[in-house]
Amino acid sequence: MKRALLLLLFFGLQHLLLAQDTIIKKTGEEIPSRVLEITLHEILYKHPDSLQGITWRMPKAEVFMVKFENGTKEVFEQQPDSMSGMAQDMTPDQLYALGKEDAKQYYKGNGAMWGSAASSMVMFPLGLAGSLVIGATPPKVKPEHVPDIRLLEDQDYLKGYKEQAARKKRGKALAGVGIGAGIQLGLIILIVSTLSAAP
């Protein structure tokens, strides 16, 4: 029994060590790797034989596709260097307004709400400080929170987006304070009613 378990463990570890992602460049070259992150312009990866070593960077413009160890694939389309059609013809004020509208639609800020709720539940008066910090921290603009990542290259669009996202984040943080305080109050009422009902 122990022998079978050791063999199973050995083959499982061997599979984990051999499992890897593959970066396929537009030239056709295949690079075995462990992909760590795919950013707006780069792919960050490590060589599978030195996972504790150097993090390598490759421009996304050179990559055709990444095949992940789980069988999924991500194909990168050739994107022009500048913003697409409609945005190129817009004035700075229009881009600023578009950024605000996109933030209203795409930025959620739910992390701020639940973080603020948890903070305010811990100790209501002291937890408010945590909620204030959460609400005051500038939101992170992620590529999945915009309809076209090329818009992030325009400073007017980005300014409008960040201002609206910050406003929305503060509102979500305030809602979180209400949720946390409501849960805390409900728990206090439940405990008091349970203790008062006890003989």
Score class of each variant (00 low, 15 high):
M1T: 10
R3N: 13
R3F: 08
L5R: 10
L8K: 14
L13E: 14
Q14Y: 13
Q14G: 12
H15K: 04
A19S: 07
A19K: 04
D21F: 03
D21I: 03
D21C: 04
K25P: 11
K25C: 12
K26W: 15
K26H: 15
T27I: 09
E29R: 10
E29K: 09
P32G: 14
P32R: 14
S33K: 02
R34E: 13
V35M: 10
I38E: 05
I38N: 05
H41N: 13
E42I: 09
L44T: 08
K46H: 07
S50K: 05
L51H: 07
Q52V: 09
T55V: 08
K60I: 13
K60D: 08
A61S: 13
M65Y: 04
K67G: 07
E69G: 09
N70V: 11
Q79T: 11
Q79Y: 10
S82I: 05
S82H: 06
M86C: 05
M86L: 10
Q88V: 10
M90K: 00
P92E: 00
D93A: 06
Y96C: 02
A97D: 14
L98S: 04
G99W: 02
K100W: 09
D102Q: 03
D102C: 02
A103H: 03
K104W: 03
Q105H: 11
Y106T: 09
N110H: 13
G111C: 03
W114N: 06
W114Q: 07
A117E: 00
S119C: 00
M121H: 03
V122F: 12
F124M: 06
P125R: 00
A129H: 03
A129E: 02
S131L: 02
L132V: 11
V133F: 13
V133R: 05
I134W: 06
I134C: 01
G135R: 01
G135V: 01
T137G: 05
P139I: 00
P139Q: 00
V146K: 02
V146W: 02
P147A: 01
P147W: 01
D148P: 01
D148K: 03
I149C: 08
I149R: 06
I149T: 11
E153I: 12
D154S: 02
D154L: 02
Y157Q: 06
Y157R: 01
Y157T: 06
Y157K: 07
Y161A: 05
K162T: 15
E163H: 07
E163C: 05
Q164Y: 08
Q164G: 10
A165P: 08
R167A: 13
R167Q: 10
K169N: 13
K169M: 14
R170D: 13
G171P: 09
K172W: 15
K172R: 15
A173C: 12
L174K: 02
L174D: 05
A175F: 14
G176L: 04
V177C: 11
V177R: 04
G178A: 08
I179L: 15
I179S: 09
G180V: 08
A181G: 12
A181K: 02
G182K: 03
L185S: 15
L187G: 11
I191H: 08
I191V: 14
I191N: 12
T194W: 13
T194D: 15
T194K: 06
A197G: 15
A197K: 13
A197Q: 15
P199T: 12
